[in-house]
Computed example of a mutant assay.
Amino acid sequence: MGVGYILLAMAMPGSLYIGSLIVGICYGVRLAITVPTASELFGLKYYGLIYNILILNLPLGSFLFSGLLAGILYDMEATTTAGGGNTCVGAHCYRLVFIIMAGACVVGFFLDVLLSIRTKDVYKRISISKNLR
């Protein structure tokens, strides 16, 4: 996903389409693996609560990155118009937002790697118990 955001930040011809495609596929994969990950790691007893907490990242991230961060950085890049509004035209308007989002994705990637290292024993026990059946 970080690669997609870097492509969006570069603003080369066609990078909008490729970057959007990469980011969209990554979001879809992330949503698809949340369900089995939540059930395998935490069990099914409080599955509804745990799943909703894991899915809370979508509206929270949209608000923080799209609502606050993108709005504030756009206003910093924009020039004031005669009518009292702000306007910004060009690739530089959202470049810093995409770079920050790529950085957040890189941090998330390393946290995912840490999670996979820490849960290696859980998955080993799951595979052993399936082989014993």
Rank of each mutant, 00 (worst) to 15 (best):
P36W: 10
P13Q: 07
H92V: 06
I53Y: 08
A9S: 10
F110G: 05
R118T: 15
T79R: 12
H92S: 14
F109W: 01
S39Q: 11
L16D: 05
V23R: 06
D121C: 10
N131F: 01
C88D: 07
I100H: 03
S39T: 07
E77R: 14
T87F: 03
L41T: 12
I53Q: 08
Y27V: 15
F65N: 06
V113D: 09
S129D: 14
F110Y: 02
L7Q: 09
G67E: 07
T80A: 14
S129G: 04
I50H: 01
D75C: 02
I53V: 15
F109D: 04
L8A: 05
L115W: 05
L64P: 11
L49A: 13
S116V: 13
F98L: 12
I128Q: 12
G83L: 09
K45L: 06
I99P: 12
G48I: 06
F110A: 09
V97P: 00
G103M: 03
L49R: 10
I126Q: 08
G28P: 13
S15Q: 03
P59L: 01
A9R: 03
L132W: 00
G108H: 04
N57C: 08
A38C: 15
S15D: 02
G48S: 15
A82K: 06
K124W: 02
I53W: 09
F98R: 01
N86E: 06
K130T: 12
I72N: 02
G108T: 05
L132E: 10
Y74R: 11
M1W: 00
T79C: 05
F63Q: 10
F42A: 13
L64T: 09
N86L: 15
N131M: 13
G90F: 03
V122P: 11
G4L: 14
I99V: 15
C93K: 08
L49W: 07
G19S: 11
V89L: 11
I100W: 02
A104L: 12
V106N: 00
L114Q: 08
L68R: 04
L115V: 06
A38I: 14
F98S: 08
I22Y: 00
T119R: 13
I128E: 15
M1T: 07
D75E: 11
L58D: 09
V97Y: 02
V97T: 12
A102R: 02
T87K: 09
D121P: 07
F63R: 07
R125N: 14
L68T: 13
V3P: 02
A9E: 00
I53P: 15
L49V: 11
G61R: 01
L73S: 03
S39W: 05
S15W: 01
G48K: 12
Y27C: 13
R133C: 09
G108C: 13
I25C: 06
F98C: 09
L60E: 06
S20W: 01
P59M: 00
S39N: 11
T87R: 09
I50Y: 03
K130S: 07
S39F: 10
C93P: 08
